[in-house]
Amino acid sequence: MVYKIRDKETGKVYEVTIDEETNEITVYDVKTGKPVKTVNMTIEELKEAGYEVEPV
């Protein structure tokens, strides 16, 4: 599923895909559409880390 996340401190917005089964999150560069990095976190962990998470 695709989400937009926003860093509450910097205001930067990222587009991510989240595999609900493995909790693998792939972060994409919004301008190029290319993957930047992959992390292993849940949506709740993202929120605790200071991100706003919205489904696209």
Rank of each mutant, 00 (worst) to 15 (best):
residue 1 M to W: 11
residue 1 M to S: 08
residue 1 M to V: 12
residue 1 M to K: 15
residue 1 M to E: 07
residue 2 V to H: 15
residue 2 V to F: 15
residue 2 V to S: 12
residue 2 V to Y: 15
residue 2 V to A: 12
residue 2 V to R: 15
residue 2 V to C: 14
residue 2 V to E: 05
residue 2 V to N: 11
residue 3 Y to R: 04
residue 3 Y to D: 00
residue 3 Y to I: 06
residue 3 Y to K: 02
residue 3 Y to P: 00
residue 3 Y to N: 01
residue 3 Y to S: 02
residue 3 Y to W: 10
residue 4 K to V: 13
residue 4 K to I: 15
residue 5 I to D: 00
residue 5 I to M: 06
residue 5 I to S: 00
residue 5 I to E: 00
residue 5 I to K: 00
residue 5 I to R: 00
residue 5 I to L: 06
residue 6 R to F: 09
residue 6 R to K: 11
residue 6 R to S: 05
residue 6 R to G: 01
residue 6 R to W: 12
residue 6 R to M: 08
residue 6 R to A: 04
residue 6 R to Q: 07
residue 6 R to H: 06
residue 7 D to N: 13
residue 7 D to S: 09
residue 7 D to E: 08
residue 7 D to K: 02
residue 7 D to H: 15
residue 7 D to Y: 06
residue 7 D to W: 04
residue 7 D to R: 02
residue 8 K to E: 02
residue 8 K to G: 04
residue 8 K to M: 09
residue 8 K to F: 05
residue 8 K to L: 11
residue 8 K to D: 02
residue 9 E to M: 13
residue 9 E to C: 15
residue 9 E to Q: 13
residue 9 E to S: 13
residue 9 E to W: 13
residue 9 E to N: 12
residue 10 T to H: 02
residue 10 T to E: 01
residue 10 T to V: 00
residue 10 T to N: 06
residue 10 T to A: 01
residue 10 T to G: 03
residue 10 T to P: 00
residue 11 G to P: 00
residue 11 G to R: 03
residue 11 G to I: 00
residue 11 G to T: 01
residue 12 K to Q: 13
residue 12 K to A: 13
residue 12 K to N: 10
residue 12 K to C: 15
residue 12 K to L: 13
residue 12 K to P: 00
residue 12 K to H: 10
residue 12 K to W: 09
residue 12 K to T: 12
residue 12 K to D: 10
residue 13 V to E: 11
residue 13 V to P: 01
residue 13 V to R: 03
residue 13 V to G: 02
residue 13 V to C: 10
residue 14 Y to F: 09
residue 14 Y to C: 15
residue 14 Y to H: 02
residue 14 Y to R: 00
residue 14 Y to Q: 01
residue 14 Y to S: 01
residue 15 E to D: 12
residue 15 E to S: 13
residue 15 E to N: 15
residue 15 E to P: 04
residue 15 E to Q: 14
residue 16 V to S: 01
residue 16 V to T: 01
residue 16 V to K: 00
residue 16 V to M: 14
residue 16 V to H: 00
residue 16 V to A: 14
residue 16 V to N: 00
residue 16 V to Q: 00
residue 16 V to G: 06
residue 16 V to P: 00
residue 17 T to I: 11
residue 17 T to M: 09
residue 17 T to P: 00
residue 17 T to A: 07
residue 17 T to G: 04
residue 17 T to F: 10
residue 17 T to Y: 12
residue 17 T to R: 14
residue 17 T to D: 03
residue 18 I to Y: 15
residue 18 I to C: 06
residue 18 I to P: 00
residue 18 I to V: 13
residue 18 I to W: 15
residue 19 D to K: 07
residue 19 D to S: 08
residue 19 D to Y: 06
residue 19 D to W: 06
residue 20 E to R: 12
residue 20 E to D: 09
residue 20 E to W: 14
residue 20 E to Q: 12
residue 20 E to F: 14
residue 21 E to W: 08
residue 21 E to T: 11
residue 21 E to G: 09
residue 21 E to C: 13
residue 21 E to Y: 11
residue 22 T to H: 12
residue 22 T to S: 10
residue 22 T to I: 07
residue 22 T to R: 14
residue 22 T to V: 06
residue 22 T to L: 11
residue 22 T to N: 13
residue 22 T to E: 05
residue 22 T to W: 05
residue 23 N to L: 07
residue 23 N to H: 10
residue 23 N to G: 13
residue 23 N to W: 07
residue 23 N to F: 07
residue 23 N to K: 10
residue 24 E to R: 13
residue 24 E to H: 10
residue 24 E to T: 15
residue 24 E to K: 11
residue 24 E to Q: 14
residue 24 E to V: 14
residue 24 E to Y: 12
residue 25 I to A: 05
residue 25 I to W: 04
residue 25 I to M: 12
residue 25 I to H: 01
residue 25 I to G: 02
residue 25 I to L: 10
residue 25 I to D: 00
residue 25 I to F: 04
residue 26 T to E: 02
residue 26 T to G: 01
residue 26 T to K: 08
residue 26 T to C: 06
residue 26 T to Y: 06
residue 26 T to Q: 05
residue 26 T to F: 07
residue 27 V to S: 03
residue 27 V to Q: 03
residue 27 V to F: 15
residue 27 V to E: 02
residue 27 V to Y: 14
residue 27 V to D: 00
residue 27 V to G: 03
residue 27 V to N: 01
residue 28 Y to A: 02
residue 28 Y to G: 00
residue 28 Y to S: 03
residue 29 D to K: 01
residue 29 D to R: 01
residue 29 D to E: 06
residue 29 D to A: 02
residue 29 D to W: 06
residue 30 V to C: 14
residue 30 V to P: 14
residue 30 V to M: 11
residue 30 V to D: 11
residue 30 V to K: 09
residue 30 V to A: 11
residue 30 V to E: 13
residue 30 V to R: 08
residue 30 V to N: 09
residue 30 V to W: 14
residue 31 K to T: 13
residue 31 K to A: 14
residue 31 K to F: 15
residue 31 K to G: 11
residue 31 K to Q: 14
residue 31 K to R: 07
residue 32 T to Y: 04
residue 32 T to H: 03
residue 32 T to Q: 03
residue 32 T to R: 02
residue 32 T to P: 01
residue 32 T to F: 03
residue 32 T to W: 05
residue 32 T to E: 06
residue 33 G to L: 06
residue 33 G to E: 03
residue 33 G to C: 12
residue 33 G to D: 03
residue 33 G to F: 05
residue 34 K to T: 09
residue 34 K to N: 10
residue 34 K to M: 12
residue 34 K to A: 10
residue 34 K to S: 08
residue 35 P to V: 14
residue 35 P to M: 11
residue 35 P to T: 08
residue 35 P to Q: 08
residue 35 P to F: 14
residue 36 V to D: 03
residue 36 V to W: 12
residue 36 V to R: 04
residue 36 V to P: 01
residue 36 V to I: 14
residue 36 V to N: 03
residue 37 K to P: 04
residue 37 K to D: 04
residue 37 K to V: 13
residue 37 K to F: 15
residue 37 K to W: 15
residue 37 K to G: 13
residue 37 K to E: 06
residue 37 K to T: 11
residue 38 T to W: 14
residue 38 T to S: 08
residue 38 T to Y: 10
residue 38 T to G: 05
residue 38 T to H: 08
residue 38 T to D: 04
residue 39 V to R: 04
residue 39 V to H: 05
residue 39 V to P: 04
residue 39 V to A: 06
residue 40 N to D: 05
residue 40 N to Y: 15
residue 41 M to R: 05
residue 41 M to I: 09
residue 41 M to S: 06
residue 42 T to P: 02
residue 42 T to V: 01
residue 42 T to F: 02
residue 42 T to Y: 02
residue 42 T to E: 01
residue 42 T to N: 07
residue 42 T to W: 01
residue 43 I to W: 08
residue 43 I to F: 08
residue 43 I to V: 07
residue 43 I to G: 01
residue 44 E to F: 10
residue 44 E to V: 09
residue 44 E to T: 09
residue 44 E to P: 06
residue 44 E to A: 12
residue 44 E to G: 10
residue 45 E to D: 12
residue 45 E to N: 07
residue 45 E to Y: 06
residue 45 E to T: 06
residue 46 L to K: 00
residue 46 L to E: 00
residue 46 L to W: 04
residue 46 L to A: 02
residue 46 L to Q: 00
residue 46 L to H: 00
residue 46 L to R: 00
residue 46 L to D: 00
residue 46 L to T: 00
residue 47 K to N: 06
residue 47 K to G: 08
residue 47 K to F: 11
residue 47 K to A: 10
residue 47 K to M: 13
residue 47 K to Q: 11
residue 47 K to S: 09
residue 48 E to N: 13
residue 48 E to C: 10
residue 48 E to A: 13
residue 48 E to D: 11
residue 48 E to G: 10
residue 48 E to M: 13
residue 48 E to W: 10
residue 48 E to S: 12
residue 49 A to L: 13
residue 49 A to I: 08
residue 50 G to P: 01
residue 50 G to E: 02
residue 50 G to K: 04
residue 50 G to Q: 03
residue 51 Y to D: 01
residue 51 Y to S: 01
residue 51 Y to H: 03
residue 51 Y to G: 01
residue 51 Y to A: 02
residue 51 Y to R: 01
residue 51 Y to K: 01
residue 51 Y to C: 08
residue 51 Y to M: 04
residue 52 E to I: 09
residue 52 E to Y: 06
residue 52 E to D: 10
residue 52 E to Q: 06
residue 52 E to W: 07
residue 52 E to N: 05
residue 52 E to G: 04
residue 52 E to L: 06
residue 52 E to T: 07
residue 53 V to A: 04
residue 53 V to K: 02
residue 53 V to I: 11
residue 53 V to W: 08
residue 53 V to Y: 04
residue 53 V to F: 09
residue 53 V to S: 02
residue 53 V to H: 02
residue 54 E to F: 14
residue 54 E to Q: 09
residue 54 E to W: 15
residue 54 E to G: 05
residue 54 E to D: 07
residue 54 E to I: 12
residue 54 E to P: 03
residue 55 P to E: 10
residue 55 P to S: 12
residue 55 P to I: 11
residue 55 P to H: 08
residue 55 P to K: 11
residue 55 P to Q: 10
residue 55 P to T: 09
residue 55 P to V: 11
residue 56 V to K: 07
residue 56 V to G: 08
residue 56 V to I: 12
residue 56 V to C: 11
residue 56 V to Q: 08
residue 56 V to T: 09
